[in-house]
Simulated assay, not measured.
Amino acid sequence: MLESALISEFSRFYMSNISDHAIDLFSKIVRLKKYKTGDVLINKGTSKFYVIVEGIVASFSKNSQKDREYIRTIHLENYAFTDLFYQINDLKLAHIDLDTKTPEDYYKCLTSCTLLEGDFKDFIDLSASNHEISLLYNKINQTILLQVLKRLDRLSLLDATDRYKILKERIPQIENLIPQYQIASYLNITPVQLSRIRKKMYSE
């Protein structure tokens, strides 16, 4: 019962008028799973997709030469994600000019997480056979694209202090949830710079 309610909440978050029948079809291709802090969810080649029910998940890029990982994005409840490189290869999109060799990209739980998990190919097949699921899929993609564009705009147009303020508005207790070095990585600054920003903000 709880799982059905969570699937319904997610579906109607993106598409308020989706029918119970379509939600029932979607529920047949996902299952509820729990993960621990630090668990890696997606590496290149996986066909799975996930929906965040509870917790914080981040997408990472790793520089193998320097053995350093960088947080690209931080995601919360109702965010859906999969391996984009899998889509390129499996959906015959190889003509797209993307470097699929570097860097290493993956998703990782920054906190303990509860997720809906399914096979992305099942989602695509269901989208092809059901109009409402196709609309749901498109609305999810539109939302993800807008979030990516917003993230790029903030990195390009805002300084680190403003980006930190936005993160705090979005996740007020972020310092109590994840380490400072991960917050700094997301802001594209060093932990020392983050410490200076926090000291200045809280002294004003």
Rank of each mutant, 00 (worst) to 15 (best):
N176P: 03
L152N: 08
E132K: 09
Q182E: 15
R68E: 14
I171N: 06
F123H: 00
I71S: 05
I74G: 00
L152R: 09
I189S: 05
T100G: 09
C109Q: 13
Y86Q: 04
I178R: 02
N17M: 04
I96N: 01
K108Y: 13
E169P: 02
C113M: 08
F85W: 10
D83Q: 08
T161S: 13
T73G: 07
T161M: 06
S8H: 11
F60S: 07
K200G: 01
E69I: 01
D67G: 03
K168E: 12
T46F: 10
K108W: 11
T114A: 09
D90Y: 06
V192A: 14
I56E: 01
S127H: 07
E69M: 05
D162G: 05
D90F: 08
L126G: 00
C109P: 05
Y164I: 04
Y35E: 10
S134C: 06
D90R: 08
T161W: 02
V30K: 00
N130M: 02
L158N: 09
N176R: 12
I74Y: 00
A5I: 14
E3I: 14
A5N: 15
S64L: 15
Q142R: 13
T102I: 15
K199G: 14
N130L: 01
R151H: 13
F60K: 11
I124G: 00
